[in-house]
């Protein structure tokens, strides 16, 4: 059984602790890593990919230390960094063939795979254009394609959807849903809707620690009864916003409709509603 175990991994930069004793066990499925800027998501993912050495703790893949596995571990891996440079003179196709060569994929298979993936991410028209002419979103899609080249068993994507337009976002979600069956997919994002429907497990990260993990349903159940819907007069909205976490605000004919995340009922007429992942996020990450 493929499993990836994090055992109290920690990363310190000088005195700053970027990742703090994180333990977790990944099995097959899609995992969504959510957290604020600077929460330590990228640092954690880099350690999982063996790019950064943890200051403490260890990572095991099906029981073996990934440090010891070395190249054997890397061949199971597909990684999309949060940002990556590229050789601007490469074309999209050449870039994929280059990555395929580094992943030790035989030439004939690489050509086939590159073609298939360019089609999958919608870049088949641009396959012979140079990368320096690509937009940010196109580079992102190419990055997703290269991560899939070796049909990885462990797919790590750091903010895969940043810079993608809504249509491409949906395409990406569909790609991930189709892939998910027999591998570990770990993706970090700030965009809640990216993972809400495709992730089997959500990991909430704050200040270098995993503060809550669980399925979407389970997390929502934790917050049930703490999400309220109410309609207030326009002049009252500021007051509400000052005192509560407002997850949504909409002007209607009858006043301003607020969706509030709060421990207790924020005011008369407020009705509890079913929480979604955004409410869960706001509940755990609100300033208290």
């Amino acid at each position: 059984m493929l499993e990836l175990t994090l055992n109290k991994i920690t990363k310190k930069y000088g005195r700053k602790i970027a990742v703090d004793h994180v333990s977790y066990e990944f099995r097959k499925g899609v995992y969504g890593l959510l957290g604020e800027n600077g929460a330590g998501k990228t640092t954690l993912l880099r350690m999982i990919c063996g790019l950064l050495e943890p200051s403490d703790g260890e990572i095991r893949c099906s029981g073996d230390s990934v440090d010891r596995m070395g190249a054997q571990y890397r061949r199971l891996l597909g990684y999309l960094p949060q940002e990556f440079g590229y050789y601007p003179e490469f074309t999209a196709r050449k870039f994929l063939l280059y990555m395929a060569a580094l992943k030790a994929i035989p030439k004939e298979l690489a050509v086939e795979k590159a073609e298939e993936l360019l089609k999958l991410v919608g870049l088949e028209q641009e396959q012979n254009s140079r990368l320096k002419t690509f937009s940010g979103g196109m580079i992102r899609r190419l990055g997703i394609a290269q991560a899939l080249l070796n049909d990885p068993e462990i797919l790590v994507l750091d903010e895969p959807t940043s810079g993608l337009d809504p249509k491409e976002r949906i395409r990406f979600r569909n790609i991930i849903s189709e892939l998910s069956r027999d591998r570990i997919i770990l993706l970090s994002t700030h965009i809640v809707s990216d993972v809400e429907y495709i992730a089997d497990e959500i990991l909430l990260m704050k200040g270098g620690e995993l503060i809550k993990t669980g399925s979407m349903e389970w997390l929502a159940a934790q917050v049930r009864g703490r999400v309220w819907d109410c309609c207030v007069r326009p002049e009252e909205t500021e007051n509400y916003q000052a005192h509560y976490s407002v997850s949504n605000l909409r002007n209607t004919d009858h006043g301003v409709r607020l969706r509030i995340v709060a421990e207790e009922c924020p005011g008369p007429g407020a009705k509890p509603v079913d929480p979604d992942l955004e409410d869960v996020y706001l509940y755990y990450f609100r300033e208290v």
Binding site: G50, A71, L77, Y79, E83, G85, A101, L102, A104, N150
Partner: peptide
């Protein structure tokens, strides 16, 4: 300089070998 190292280092033939 190109910042492609992170990608290259995560591959089977990593950047150190290259």
């Amino acid at each position: 300089a190109r910042g492609m190292v992170e990608l290259e280092q995560s591959c089977y033939i990593n950047m150190l070998q290259l």
